[in-house]
Design a protein around this nucleic acid. Structure first.
Lengths: 188, 188
DNA sequence: ATTTATTTACCGAACGTTCGGTAAATAATA
DNA sequence: TATTATTTACCGAACGTTCGGTAAATAAAT
């Protein structure tokens, strides 16, 4: 007898969780199969190019998430800049589970095959920097200063996630979100 | 016929470079063998517990490096605090090849076996934070402020390394070292 | 009935690891 | 000092397991 059809979104989510938590090399087909509830051959039915395609797929989902939760939110001129900021930062806190979750952009950037994902990963980072830059400019900062501040957001986030993840102490990440919120508060 | 004896220090260095650049799961015994010039069986002669022992060994070397180049340097009261700072930061720049090199503490913190290294990795991070804290206190900062500033060093470094590594643009790291140097310059 | 989705069963290759054995260096003996 | 015994360092070949991946069979959906 055969299992019920597996919800594709749930599959995406489970693939994402595996790749994010253990990276590309640490994610075996067996672990991906167990997490999704699909046999290996079924995964190959959905992703004919295998593991690579799965990782690229979840990476594209992250890019979409950034567009939906950062780019679009920060550019929404119907809301005040400071509230947009809070919404975006709050979304980041949820995405990373307050520091308990690794970042897929980072875990896919290590290992012999990291080059495959480099272009998309770089684009994701750029999306974040650019949308924060534009918000800060809109809030009144000079372009150069806005750029300088926005350029700090990704490294601050990633650094905090590295420390929280490596040590298990999420205070690194929580402090980081607070700091980012404060030092961007040039705005109303 | 048998090869000449291989220099143990060079083996350590090569193992370190592999684990640092591709992480634990990305480092195959074959790649470790090729990098060191020792056949797999010879690696097992030196490290009877295999890959795990090799990674723990290079991690211990990093701990020693931190003691020699950060802890000892920052605590050397024969030299002025600001010069000690410059020496330590300069060493970090060399270690990471100005952002081109990954950090072993980070690459060993991802994957199914990351837990094996967690304790030592955490200790390494703590060594850095503590030694910077003590220097800042010696330089005149109140304890709480010294601690707060010192607590930023690891995440700032790691974040810059993530960005430089993921995108290939080392300006992230170079800016980071400058920023750290500046914002610690409470001292003479 | 045809197409789509999933599964079972399997494959070659690569994985980390182990084993048997050899050349060279060192220590003990004579 | 010359000879013998022991240890050290290394290697080729193979181990069992797991890897990513595929073909054929079966079930579900249309």
């Amino acid at each position: 007898m055969r299992n019920n059809k597996v919800d594709p979104e749930n599959v995406d989510q489970k693939l994402f969780e595996i790749f994010r938590s253990v990276g590309y090399d640490g994610a075996s087909m067996e672990s991906l199969s167990q997490a999704t509830g699909l046999k290996k051959a079924s995964l190959y039915h959905r992703f004919p190019n295998g593991k690579q395609e799965m990782a690229q797929h979840v990476l594209k989902n992250v890019e979409q998430w950034i567009n939906d939760n950062i780019v679009t939110v920060l550019a929404d001129k119907a809301i005040s800049p400071s509230i947009r900021l809070k919404k975006a930062i709050s979304s980041l806190g949820k995405l990373y589970n307050n520091g308990a979750n690794n970042c897929l952009l980072r875990t896919l950037s290590i290992g012999p095959d990291a080059g495959i994902f480099k272009e998309t990963v770089t684009h994701c980072f750029n999306l974040i920097t650019q949308s924060f830059t534009e918000l800060l400019i809109e809030a009144g900062l000079p372009g150069s200063e806005a750029k300088k501040k926005a350029n700090l957001i990704n490294p601050l986030l990633q650094g905090a996630l590295v420390l929280s993840g490596a040590t298990g102490d999420n205070s690194h990440f929580e402090n980081c979100l607070d700091n980012i919120g404060q030092f961007l508060q040039t705005t109303n």
